[in-house]
C-alpha cells in the first residue's frame, strides 16, 4: 500500500523548481502540493493548511527570520534545506535534513528516499497498531493455525500467559473468532496470504 506524501517546495529560481519537480516525479506516492517563491503573504499559514509531510526550502527564499520559519512549520512536517557550497554553516545547522544543489541525481534520490523512508517508519506502527510486539507474535501464530498449547511451547510461555494475551488481543481489537483475527492480520500485514495457504 503506497502511502501518499505531500510535499511543498519554496524556491525562487525557475530552473531549480523544475528540477525538484522532476526529481519528485521519480518517487511513487509523492505529491507536489504547491510551489512558492517565498514572497507570498502569510506563507506559514498557507503551508500549514496544506498539511505537508515535507517542506523543501531554499533558505535564501525566506525573507523573514529563517529560525522562526522552521519553528512555525507544522511539527508533522519534515523541513529539508536546499543548500549550496556557499551556504553559511549557521544556516545549514538550522536543518536536520538537507539536499545539496550541486549533487548528482543519484545522490539526490538517495538522500530524499532516506528522509522519506525514516518518515514512513516513524508513522506506521504506533498509530494503527494497538498491539504490543508480544501480542503481535501470539496473533501471528494463532492465525497460522496453532493451538494455544502449541503457541505456548513455541514461545516458551505458559498456556495461561498465552490465553491472557489472546484475551487482551480480542479486547483491544474487538474481534473474537480466529477467522476474524486472520482477516485482521492479513489486512495489517501481520501475516501474508501465502503463509496460510501453506
Amino acid at each position: 500500500m503506497a502511502q501518499k506524501i505531500t510535499v511543498i517546495v519554496i524556491e525562487r529560481s525557475y530552473l531549480l523548481r523544475s528540477g525538484i519537480e522532476g526529481l519528485l516525479k521519480e518517487f511513487q506516492g509523492m505529491h507536489l502540493a504547491e510551489i512558492y517563491d517565498g514572497t507570498e503573504k502569510n506563507l506559514i499559514q498557507k503551508i500549514n493548511t496544506l498539511k505537508p509531510d515535507c517542506v523543501i526550502v531554499n533558505p535564501k527564499a525566506i525573507t523573514d527570520s529563517l529560525n522562526t520559519f522552521v519553528r512555525s512549520v507544522n511539527n508533522e512536517a519534515t523541513v529539508i534545506g536546499l543548500i549550496s557550497g556557499n551556504t553559511a554553516d549557521h544556516i545549514k545547522s538550522r536543518f536536520a535534513n538537507t539536499l545539496h544543489i550541486k549533487d548528482g541525481k543519484h545522490e539526490l534520490m538517495n538522500s530524499l528516499s532516506q528522509i522519506i523512508g525514516r518518515k514512513k517508519n516513524n508513522k506506521a506502527p504506533n498509530k494503527n497498531q494497538p498491539l504490543t510486539e508480544r501480542e503481535l507474535t501470539v496473533l501471528k501464530n494463532i492465525t497460522l493455525g496453532l493451538t494455544n498449547q502449541e503457541v505456548a511451547e513455541k514461545l516458551f510461555l505458559s498456556i495461561h500467559t498465552v490465553m491472557t494475551h489472546r484475551k487482551n488481543i480480542t479486547k483491544k481489537l474487538g474481534i473474537k473468532t480466529v477467522s476474524g483475527l486472520t482477516v485482521y492480520a492479513l489486512l495489517n500485514k501481520v501475516i501474508d496470504i501465502q503463509d496460510i495457504e501453506q
Binding site: L173, G174, I175, K176, T177, S179, G180, V183, Y184, L187, N188
Partner: peptide, 15 residues
C-alpha cells in the same frame, strides 16, 4: 453470533 460481531468490527474499524 461471534462471527457476525467480528464482521461488523472489521467493517467499522479495519477495512
Amino acid at each position: 453470533e461471534e462471527k457476525l460481531f467480528d464482521l461488523k468490527n472489521l467493517i467499522i474499524k479495519y477495512l
